[in-house]
Nucleic acid binder design. Structure first.
Lengths: 186, 186
DNA sequence: CTCCTGGTAGAACGTTCGGTCTACACCGGT
DNA sequence: ACCGGTGTAGACCGAACGTTCTACCAGGAG
């Protein structure tokens, strides 16, 4: 059964690694992951084949969660596609102003992992594609000219918001981005 | 004297580290830096006190070069502040489409170095402040309302361009950003 | 009861990490 | 001629890296 009193080692490892790989970066050591999860060394290699596999799985899980946050924010903003898309930047404002925000996890992974063959890269690519599709679906309904172009610009604003939020913590990049998004969508 | 047939070990080390710390990330090993620069281990510690000092100095040098690129691009664009600012995004288009582009060096350093006390963070902060001032000076001449706000938005577009260029190499984020910049500046 | 599965605990592997150290060579200045 | 400064070459250190290994233990199924 999936549910026990305490989550199994696989679950504990994923939870701890999701937190630590964000706080400390994906180059965090295996020992730190194991002791944070209270998991035996062996379990890591049985469940994920190695650190790379764990990191990739962590990113997959985080991607699913983050996409759900985008979907929830959009769904809660009513029916107007314009308002639904602007709601994304309201959600981003919350995220980047939350203490402990350290930038976009996926960009951080791509920059930190130099080897192009690392399985993490495929996960981040897939994540961005899903997010792009999510936005494109809303943009489509607006019947604007060049919908693909508009979607790319929204993606750029999102990446810029997360990057600026990490680089200049005093600023409020999501507000700036939201204003720019309003320009695009009108 | 400063000029010899071959640059001294300090110069070689800076040059090699500037390249390697970008290609491989700032977590590149000391041995890789030393062998790439053909420099004795000892020289690193005599000249920079350690790897952290070298990384910080590399970022300082890169920042000076990058700021000069911005200044040159702006200066070459004539007298109209609007055209001068848009020229920044033309320059960025060149940068992000150049093979081997791996994103913003300074954001990469901030994300990869988890310890807040690392000297690199002060350098990246200073770099962004200088870039911000550079843009603000041009924005000021436009006599727009909320010039600080506009400058922040331009910074966000720049960060977004560099992040997107690294994350989605097939896109042309600088063009999208330039179009948004035109909206801001009009 | 016995056996198997899946978990823990931890030693140990070889490699790499950043950093310190010794030994020696070159070269310009006095 | 000599000396001090600066460089190279490379051994060496303790620690951390990712990984593999053995030994043991709990719980459920046969």
């Amino acid at each position: 059964m999936g549910t026990r009193i305490q989550p199994g080692p696989r679950e504990r490892l994923l939870t701890a690694a999701q937190r630590l790989s964000y706080e400390q970066g994906v180059n965090v050591g295996v020992d730190a992951l194991l002791s944070a999860a209270n998991v035996a060394r062996r379990s890591l290699y049985e469940h994920f084949g190695g650190k790379d596999g764990l990191i990739a799985e962590v990113l997959r899980r985080a991607a699913a969660e983050d996409l759900d946050r985008y979907r929830s924010a959009i769904a809660a903003a009513g029916d107007d596609p314009r308002q639904r898309l602007l709601a994304v930047f309201d959600m981003l404002d919350e995220i980047v102003t939350t203490p402990g925000f350290r930038g976009c996890r996926y960009l951080g992974a791509d920059l930190a992992l130099a080897e192009p063959a690392h399985p993490a890269h495929a996960v981040t690519q897939q994540y961005r594609q899903s997010l792009h599709d999510l936005l494109a679906h809303e943009v489509q309904r607006l019947r604007l000219p060049r919908p693909g172009h508009v979607t790319d610009q929204l993606m750029l604003l999102i990446e810029g918001t997360l990057a600026t939020g990490a680089a200049r913590p005093t600023s409020r990049p999501a507000r700036d981005a939201r204003e720019l998004a309003q320009h695009i969508l009108s």
